[in-house]
Simulated assay, not measured.
Amino acid sequence: MRDSEPLTGEPLALDLVNTRPATAGGRTDLLDTPERLAAWLALEEARMGPETGGDVPTEADLAAIHAVRAHTERAVHALLRGQEPPAAALRGLTDAQRVAPAVRELTWDGGRVTPTVRRTGPLGIRLAALLAEAAADLLTDPAIGRLRECEADDCVMLFLPANPRRRWCSAARCGNRARVARYYQRHKQAAGREQ
């Protein structure tokens, strides 16, 4: 897995926060263009439901997504430090949900009534509402107390470990780097002792 690829598999709100990984030059934004947002939405398609509606993201959609990501990031990092999340971040997430509330649209499929959750408005507003709702779910979940930051020195990714011994955001990303570094260090020390 390359660092330029989004890390997925955590709760949706953490996957969103994790679209700003650390790089040699600081942090990079994996959702900086409509095309990259579309690629991330494709990765998250199973969890996004009908919110994308087949729409193609535009530049205008990015601002709403970035705002929800920033609010989520501030709230999550405060909780990670054992602090109260900023009121502005919580208010921003609430406001994003309010702009495009979820409505259960009822239809008849020929045998029964079926609900489909729908939101109205531009794609960015619908996605922001869905992602803010995912953030609300994460922030109010008792599991948030297990939230961890990757232990790799150059990583800022967050995760909720199923196993309390988990140390890295991804075994394929940071776990492999740590194992390779330990291997190199052991062999370097062994070579130094032989001389």
Rank of each mutant, 00 (worst) to 15 (best):
Arg69Gln: 05
Leu14Lys: 06
Ala132Phe: 00
Glu35Leu: 11
Ala88Trp: 11
Thr140Asn: 15
Leu138Glu: 10
Arg119Asn: 06
Asp55Pro: 01
Tyr184Ser: 12
Gly175Thr: 02
Glu59Ser: 12
Glu10Leu: 00
Ile65Met: 01
Asp15Cys: 08
Leu7Thr: 01
Gln189Phe: 12
Arg2Thr: 15
Leu41Trp: 07
Ala24Trp: 07
Ala152Thr: 03
Leu138Gln: 01
Val76Leu: 09
Asp153Val: 01
Thr19Trp: 05
Val117Tyr: 02
Arg74Trp: 05
Gly53Leu: 02
Leu138Met: 02
Asn18Gln: 11
Thr94Ala: 15
Glu105Val: 15
Ala172Pro: 00
Ala96Met: 03
Arg91Asp: 14
Arg27Pro: 13
Gly175Pro: 02
Val117Thr: 07
Leu7Cys: 06
Asp109Ile: 00
Trp168Cys: 10
Thr140Asp: 15
Ala78Asp: 10
Arg165Asp: 10
Ala143Gln: 08
Val17Phe: 00
Val56Leu: 03
Ala67Asn: 07
Ala89Cys: 07
Arg91Phe: 07
Ala135Val: 05
Thr114Trp: 01
Pro57Lys: 06
Gly124Trp: 05
Val17Ala: 12
Arg69Tyr: 01
Glu45His: 07
Ala132Asp: 04
Gly110Asp: 07
Leu14Ile: 02
Cys150Glu: 06
Leu62Thr: 06
Arg148Trp: 11
Ala191Ser: 14
Val156Ala: 13
Gly175Tyr: 00
Ile144Val: 14
Thr8Gln: 08
Gly121Phe: 00
Arg173Cys: 11
Val103Ile: 12
Arg81Trp: 02
Leu16Asn: 12
Thr23Gln: 14
Gly145Leu: 11
Thr52Met: 02
Leu147Phe: 10
Thr52Asn: 01
Pro142Val: 00
Pro164His: 15
Asn18Tyr: 02
Asp15Leu: 09
Ala38Phe: 04
Arg166Ile: 04
Ala190Met: 11
Arg177Met: 10
Tyr183Gly: 12
Ala152Ile: 08
Ala152Leu: 06
Gly9Ala: 00
Ala89Asp: 08
Tyr183Ile: 11
Thr23Pro: 07
Ser4Asp: 15
Thr116Gly: 05
Ala87Asp: 06
Asp55Tyr: 11
Leu123Trp: 02
Asn18Cys: 08
Gly9Thr: 03
Asp3Cys: 02
Glu51Gln: 14
Glu44Trp: 11
